[in-house]
Structures are given as structure tokens and as C-alpha cells.
Write a protein that binds this DNA or RNA. Structure first.
Lengths: 189, 189
DNA sequence: GTCGGCATGTAAGCTGTTACATGATTGA
DNA sequence: TCAATCATGTAACAGCTTACATGCCGAC
């Protein structure tokens, strides 16, 4: 379980509310960690109970009050302990690949629609990651050096999405070829 | 939940025991679906209860008896129904990227060891996927055409692992540069 | 004789999702 | 007035992992 450590990592950079953390996961950090607000709020409670976080309630006049969490010394110690542990490599369960594998049973047109839908999502993700990269590249060299490690995680997202899109090209070429074959067969009759 | 549909997909190709299915997940199909034996056996039970699978107990003289499952007509219908549904794109939670992001807090050498460990695993995966690809490419064209869709899922694995390794090159270059800088600083004193 | 492969399960616990719940403010 | 953003939570359930459990066969 590393949601707690992902949260500690975020709070190590700067204090934040649960809402802020969820926003980070939804936006820039979504390519390496995802969590819904329900899970984040529960985890924040538990991390506080264990003394790894400090919590300050902050009243706001124009917006609802919020709880701003920051990492405590024992939280930072826990994060360091965890960093020294080896991480298990990621395993993936990819429903789209199952569908493609079983694709002979599906309507050919359905597969193409589904691929196009996923392509659009991946393209959007890539675009927004590249926007973030552009911002990074416009920083002065000292600041770039400071943010080099987070930047490398961004690179993972960019290279990963490009590879996905290159794969989609192969798949779509094959599905197009199949569609043409079906057309030709229909024409023969 | 698509473990059940991943199992239906496998059984659509040929009947298999729980043990066989787990072996498939561990070997060739591991790059798109993973499940432990405990989960698979439970799911097989449930799929049988719903009438989507047929089960034949098969006695063996030299090995323990086994239960061979095959997909039923209603199972195939369910698989088709599911194939027509849109799939949610995969979200990933990658502990290694969290560690890299928080890497400023870690011992630099630890990060390099961890990256090397993961690189070795990804290289092994790539090697074995490429072996499977080689076998596919040696099939006669008609058989290749029949297995084209499963082959495309294999391509996903190959392109994905290559992208991972290309990313690892970037990361390791940066970590090596950091190590040298630390060395130089130590030398200055 | 012990280690790995074959073969199947139960039970407890943790992680993550879905559904339900509330309520203020701001912009179209 | 309707939707979106800010802000936080509870409860039930589904999915997955870990621990425990058994037993035969063949090879070294």
C-alpha cells in the first residue's frame, strides 16, 4: 500500500488540503498515482492518527473552511524508511487488451470505435503532459536542476503515452485492413 | 471487474483448469492481466454458479485430478455483451515513480540500485515477449492471420517495455550525473 | 529425502470503488 | 437558474493480497 506514501511525498513538497491532493492526482500526477477523494480523506485521517501529519483548520470567508495538512518529522522519517525499501514492479490489468485479444468475437466496427475513443484520451493526456514539460523547459537552469527528479517522472508519462499511440497505429492499421477485407468479400457476392 | 471476462476470453480459445489459467497469467499474458491462484479459483466457482462455464472433473494417474472448465453458450453470450461495452482507460499507481519523485530524500545510491533492479525485470520481460514474437513470426501466414489480434496485444507489451527501458536510460544518466557531482564536491573538500 | 511442479481450496484482511450526503459561492 | 468549483465526509461493497492448508509424484 503506497497511497499513504504518495500523500506523504506530496506533502513533503508543500502543505495541502485533501481537496488539493485529489486535484494533483487528477491533474499532473495522474500518470503515476490515482485516488478518489473518499480514499484520500480516509487516508489523511489515518496518517494524522499515526502522527505522520499535522493538521491546521483554516477558515475561509469566500470558500468553505479547509484542513491543511503538513508532514511531521515522524512522517518524514517514515517516508525515508519506505524509500529505502524495494518496490514491487507494477502489474497491470488492462481490459482493452482483453477485448482486443477476444476481438474475433466482437463486431469489427465496435473495436475501431473503442480504439478511437481510447486514442483520443491518450492523445489528450500526452498533450497536457507536454504542456507541463514545456513549462519546465522554460524555467531557469537552477530551478530545472532542483525539479529534475519530478521531471523524470513526467518523462515516464510522455514516453509511455507516445509508445501507446505508436501501438495504436499498428492496431488501427490492422483493423482497417480487416474492414476492407470484409468490404471486398461483400462486393464479391 | 473484468477478471471474469479475462477468464472467459482464455476459455473461449480452449478449455483449461484453474492451474492452467494461472500459468497463462504468469507467463505470456502477464503483460495484460495478472491474478493469483486464490482469486482465479474463486472466480471459476462463481462463473460456474452463474452457468457461464461447464466443468468436467478429469482424473489423472500420475498427477492430481483436475477440473477442466470450458465456456458455455451463455458464457460466450456474456463475453460478447461485455465486448460491446466501452472499457474505462487504465489508471496506474506506480510506486517506483513516487520514489523517484521523492528521490531527493533518499540515499542517491539506493535509487540507482532500485532502478537497476527494475531494469533487469523489464529487460527479462521484454526478452521473453520477443521470444514469443519470434515464434509467431515463424508461423505460416494463414496461422499468423488467425492469431493477429492476440499478436497485437503482444506488441503492446513489447512497445511498452521498450519505452520503459528508454525512459530508464534517461533516469540512469541523470542519477549517474548526480553521483559524479557528489564525488566532485567531496573532492573539493 | 527434499525440492519443485501439479492441483485445489478457505479465511481474514486490506485497498479501492460506488453510492449517498451536505452546503456555500461564482460564472454563464 | 443551472452547472461547476470548493470542501468534506460515511457506509456498503467489490476486488485483490496474504496467510494458512493439503497431498501426490518425479527428479536429483
Amino acid at each position: 500500500m503506497s497511497l499513504r506514501h504518495a500523500i506523504l511525498t506530496l506533502l513533503e513538497t508543500e502543505p495541502a488540503s485533501g481537496y488539493d491532493i485529489v486535484k494533483h492526482f487528477k491533474q499532473s500526477l495522474g500518470y503515476f498515482w490515482n485516488a478518489k477523494h473518499q480514499q484520500v480523506y480516509q487516508e489523511l485521517r489515518r496518517l494524522s492518527d499515526e502522527g505522520w501529519l499535522l493538521c491546521v483548520e483554516q477558515a475561509q470567508s469566500d470558500k468553505p473552511d479547509k484542513k491543511v495538512y503538513s508532514i511531521s518529522p515522524s512522517g518524514r522519517a517514515e517516508l525515508k524508511r519506505w524509500l529505502a525499501e524495494p518496490a514491487a514492479p507494477n502489474t497491470l490489468n488492462d481490459a482493452l487488451l482483453v477485448k482486443l485479444y477476444a476481438g474475433a468475437l466482437a463486431e469489427p466496427a465496435e473495436l475501431r470505435v473503442e480504439m478511437a475513443r481510447h486514442r483520443a484520451i491518450h492523445q489528450d493526456t500526452l498533450d497536457s503532459l507536454q504542456d507541463i514539460e514545456q513549462q519546465y523547459l522554460e524555467l531557469d537552469p537552477a530551478e530545472q536542476a532542483r525539479q529534475r527528479l519530478p521531471y523524470l517522472t513526467l518523462r515516464r508519462g510522455i514516453l509511455g503515452e507516445r509508445a501507446w499511440l505508436a501501438w495504436a497505429d499498428e492496431v488501427e492499421a490492422e483493423l482497417a485492413a480487416r474492414a476492407e477485407q470484409l468490404n471486398a468479400e461483400a462486393f464479391d457476392k
